[in-house]
Amino acid sequence: MPIDGALLEIEDLNAWYGESHVLHGISFDLREGETLSLIGRNGAGKTTTLRAILGIVRNRKGTIRFRGEDLTAVPLHAIARRGIGYVPEERGIFASLTVAENLVLPPVVKGGGMSEEEIYRLFPNLAERRSSQGTKLSGGEQQMLAIARILRTGADVILLDEPTEGLAPVIVERIGEVMGMLKARGMTIVLVEQNFHFARKLADRYVVVEHGRGVDYFAASELDAKMAGLAEQLGV
């Protein structure tokens, strides 16, 4: 369902890992400043959707239009320069870099990002441990770092893959606060999330992904009405 003036338009996107066909024509649009949550079972194609948008999965067909530009022809390293930041599921903190080096690794791609000082004020844990090895941090701290390093770059669209996976409730709450703040700053967010309670506090709209397709689209206001059906669909 195309929307006029969408920031990111995904249309009939197919993607393959080697021989296996993972995305079967998923479509959705993303509006400026909104938080869109991709929900679905494990293996439904949510992570692959993010990876296909970024070009990590090169073998793909369909439309990925960002601010009117076709991203499928843009090289992997040039996509971030358009202002798209990525927080991968495995967090991707580098063992051979200190916390501070991890934080400043992604180059600044746009004005309006947070300064190092602001980030350290937001995440005091990271400030304390700025000279430790990146992977010596706890899981929660690594997740904070993975989000923090994108905040510095000035990216205004952020793709987050399962940010709460495997984390303690206190930390999930903290990440929720940070994301609430990002939303308030006008950041556009695509959130892949299994934790429904977490997603519902943030998401404006939902896309239900199944077998590499978008099978249902609805706004946050419709969530309660959809809840029973979803519980069955997602097996939660």
Binding site: L54, I56, P75, L76, H77, A78, I79, A80, R81, Y86, P88, G92, F94, A95, S96, L97, E101, V104, L105, P106, P107, V109, T153
Partner: peptide, 25 residues
């Protein structure tokens, strides 16, 4: 140095470093 940090990071995970906007090739 910063260039060295790029190098170390790209040695570990070149794809992720590319998604940050660094021209790994």
């Amino acid at each position: 140095t910063r260039i060295g940090a790029y190098l170390r990071a790209a040695t570990e995970n070149p794809v992720l470093v590319q998604t940050f906007g660094i021209n790994v090739p």
